[in-house]
Design a protein around this nucleic acid. Structure first.
Lengths: 180, 180, 180, 180
DNA sequence: CATGAATGAGCTTTCATTCAT
DNA sequence: TATGAATGAAAGCTCATTCAT
């Protein structure tokens, strides 16, 4: 699994071969198929782990405590999780469009993430700390707000400026962009 | 080209075969290779056209006229362009991670788009209609704000609610999310 | 035909394409097939012309006149004919092993040439100017004596030293190699 | 390798397909590519073995012992080696003109063979058993003397009369053809 | 008669997967 | 359980040839 993760992160699903994964793991091809049904299967397993890692870092907001720092902390952990180990690269570039099953897993992942954001928005609206308004599309927008800079950094091959990104996201969340 | 666009949009680069493209176009395999060097080549051509379509709908802001409606109109055209014909699906899912050349083209595309957004932010700051602050990461965030809902709609196989999205984006741009 | 000859001489039968021949001749592909049935056909025609050229330069020996100079002159003309225009390259490298028909043509060509040499040997023996002995294999040996240096020059891409070759051949013919 | 040798000998490089080689060997196409990079590669390997076989049978002349029988023995072994297994067919018809690399290998082969002959001629001249005179072209002529009858037999599809050929070559070597 | 776009059979090659050891 | 040689379906691509214009 760890070897597969490295190989998929480095080469992507299509350019990576089972042979590469086996070589990286130091086992024979047959051994691979004793543990995984197919290349597709291990990729799905790797992706699932990555999704769990990403979703796992988000901590539910405690409404009794100050909210803003909790949101910031969540965003920061999220960004770090996605930026680590090419997780973003695999999840955002490779996982989409593989096949129906893969897309379903991806939909579930995003559905869960967006659901959490939307729930947070609703709770925030109820508490009066989030502006009222439609939440479904807004949740998707917020997801993109965080995801896109990570994707761009991966595409450019640059390290991500996590603090800067958290600050930028925070600014947009708090006050938008336009004045007046 | 039109046939290839349909096939790549439907099946993706890897699942689509030259045979599929030829069948869709109603020509023989040899005919294909009279016009394109390789499967990779025609995909690059399709992607390039899509990129041009997307970038082409963005009209420079006229600072003499009211700015907000112009921004809204740009966002709306952009969203429609990306949502049409699975452009988003191809550009966001298939084009990334193919090879070095493809990634370079993608970087150029995003670089141009982000550059435009950043320039607009700077101009807006100079005019006093955009809050001051860092612009590079913010530009990426704004790109994600628009891109992600389109991607999600494509992933879910739903039609995109363009007006709703434009409204949601507008809301975030104007006032952010958080109160106080 | 002239264009085909150039192309086949330059590229060989297999690496040359009908497209190359047409480009060299400045005509369209369809035009080519108005005059020749196939690539194989025009190659056969080119080869036939070359064979005729080679065989045509050999002049029957006039037994009334001094014989040695006539033989030398024949060898020299033969060498020049084979060395010119990559004739040797086409005849010796490309024409063999194409298909049954091509091999048959080649057999006829060599059969004729070897027959001429053998007849000359027999006549010479009758006249007492050629040592007695078996003639069939000897004729093949003599053919090789002339052909091989031409082939080697073509393979090495060097110009052939015609005078030197004629002298060397003459020396072997007259006195062999070994002493005593 | 053995199967490939048979197939290349029978069909030639261009008419032989990897499929034929695999069928002859009784293995699947994939198996072939586990051992050889390409059709070109295995052909080069086959040719190399053939070249080594041919060059390997030539034994250096021992100047202390009678020379003529040694030369005859060498020629005989050479002829047998080239005549066996369609070695001549592959080496003389198929190997030439494939590509730059193949021609280079062929040049090396012939260069080595001609070099050996030339060295033998020089040694013979020093020992006074070979007539004085130019050696480079003469060496090529002698090569042709032996090679051509083998080639002709292969082309005609006849078995080669090895003893007759050795005798004919011997006659030419010793006394040439012409009298007086 | 010249054209050249269209053709499609057939080639080489790849690689996920199997299975006897 | 680990192995890795063997597998073969399927892909991309070439090029001699045809035929409507």
């Amino acid at each position: 699994m760890a070897a597969a993760r490295r190989v998929f992160a480095r080469d992507g699903f299509h350019r990576a071969g089972v042979a590469n994964v086996c070589a990286e793991a130091g086992v024979a091809r047959g051994t691979f198929y004793n543990y995984f049904d197919s290349k597709r299967t291990i990729f799905a397993a790797v992706v699932e782990v990555m999704m769990a890692e990403v979703l796992g870092v988000v901590v539910p907001i405690d409404v009794a405590a100050p909210i803003a720092p909790q949101v910031v902390a969540n965003v920061e952990r999220l960004v770090r999780a996605v930026a680590a180990d090419d997780v973003g690269r695999v999840l955002f570039s490779e996982a989409a469009g593989l096949d129906a099953e893969g897309d379903a897993a991806l939909r579930e992942f995003y559905g869960f993430a967006i659901g959490r954001i939307e729930a947070a928005l609703r709770t925030g609206q109820a508490l009066g700390v989030v502006r009222s308004g439609e939440t479904a599309l807004t949740a998707r927008c917020l997801l993109g707000l965080i995801k896109e800079p990570v994707f761009q950094a991966a595409l450019a091959g640059e390290a991500l400026d996590v603090e800067g990104l958290v600050a930028a996201v925070g600014r947009v969340l708090r006050g938008g962009i336009l004045i007046g």
